[in-house]
């Protein structure tokens, strides 16, 4: 296997105040290879977004990385000086966020917000940066880029803003794009448009993507490999085909059963009973045991380890 772009090793991220520590990401390991699209899947509150913010070193002030490493091309980003990190952010690792409506600065023009990182990272002139900004705006589907550049964000729709965000993230041709639920806040038709666009951009570059989502439909469309998270841990990871064909973890199966699919007979959607236990309230055994239809005595007694059941397919379950 060629050298990984990103390696996350036993990452543990906590929320901290004076009195206690709450672990929200609990010992996560994964890698992203060149040109790979890895989907990080799970319900709200399972630690997906905290994982992505940990990678970017953009955690809120109340949170911190307690253990582990995040290596980008071999360099550990954890504890890296802010100045060094700023050189990577937006240049080599870019990120787009869930909320296109609030992620752009309301008082600066689109052009300003696009060109400032181009000028900063690529050291080109203002005029050259404008030209490049226009190219990217065109790439993300604005036929009149020069006009859009002069607009303020409030004049654009959510889908347009997310396309601007995408142009911004892509403008320095990063190796790694972290997309944190980029389509969740958008209408379905706009979602498809943005996903198509990301896929197209992927085809043309050798960029890797970490795609964070709770939407398995999006996973099937976009990802090459899938990581399923539950309660701060990875519970299953494999390539996208085996995940849909032979899911092994009861939680993954539950997710699949609660996702509507077009194929086959009219299926019943079976929701997973209960909800994710809040951080700090995890049961001693398997964290999914309380919601698991198959749970046995061992599940409640002993925490399962993530183990490779089939080559390339790892599952955290006693019964798999």
């Amino acid at each position: 296997m060629p050298e990984a772009i990103l390696e996350v090793k036993s990452l543990r991220t906590v929320f901290k105040d004076k009195h206690k520590e709450l672990t929200v990401v609990d010992g996560i390991d994964f890698e992203i290879g060149p040109n790979e699209v890895v989907a990080l899947v799970g319900e709200s509150g399972c630690g997906k977004s905290m994982t992505s913010l940990s990678i970017m070193q953009l955690l809120p002030r109340s949170a911190e990385i307690a253990e582990g490493e995040v290596r980008y091309r071999g360099r550990n980003l954890v504890g890296m000086k802010n100045k060094e990190m700023a050189k990577l952010r937006g240049r080599h690792i870019s990120m787009i966020f869930q909320e296109p409506m609030t992620s752009l600065n309301p008082v600066l023009t689109i052009g300003m917000q696009l060109t400032e990182s181009i000028i900063r990272h690529l050291g080109v002139s203002k005029v050259e940066a404008d030209t490049r900004a226009d190219e990217w705006l065109k790439r993300v589907g604005f036929p009149e880029p020069a006009r859009i550049r002069r607009e303020f964000p409030h004049r654009l729709s959510g889908g347009m803003r997310q396309r601007v965000m995408l142009a911004m993230a892509m403008s320095c041709r990063p190796d790694l794009l972290i997309a944190d639920e980029p389509t969740t806040a958008l209408d379905v038709t706009i979602q498809a448009q943005v996903l198509d666009l990301i896929r197209e951009l992927l085809k043309e570059s050798d960029m890797s993507v970490l795609f964070i989502t709770h939407d398995l439909g999006v996973v099937a469309e976009m990802a090459t490999r899938v990581i399923v998270m539950y309660a701060g841990q990875i519970v299953e990871t494999t390539d996208v085909r085996s995940l849909f064909q032979k899911p092994m973890h009861p939680y993954t199966k539950g997710l699949l059963n609660s996702t509507p699919r077009m194929k086959g007979d009219i299926e019943k959607l079976i929701p997973i009973a209960g909800s994710v236990p809040p951080a700090g309230m995890y049961p001693p055994g398997c964290r999914f045991a309380d919601r698991c239809p198959l749970a046995e005595a061992v599940c409640r007694a002993e925490a399962p380890q993530l183990r490779e059941v089939v080559p390339g397919h790892r599952v955290r379950c006693h019964l798999a």
Binding site: M56, L58, K83, M85, A86, K87, L88, R89, G90, R91, S94, M95, F97, S103, L104, N105, E116, S117, R120, H121, M165, M168
Partner: peptide, 9 residues
């Protein structure tokens, strides 16, 4: 956060 994610000083 976006501004920070862009790598601005």
């Amino acid at each position: 956060r976006t501004a920070k994610a862009k790598g601005l000083p």
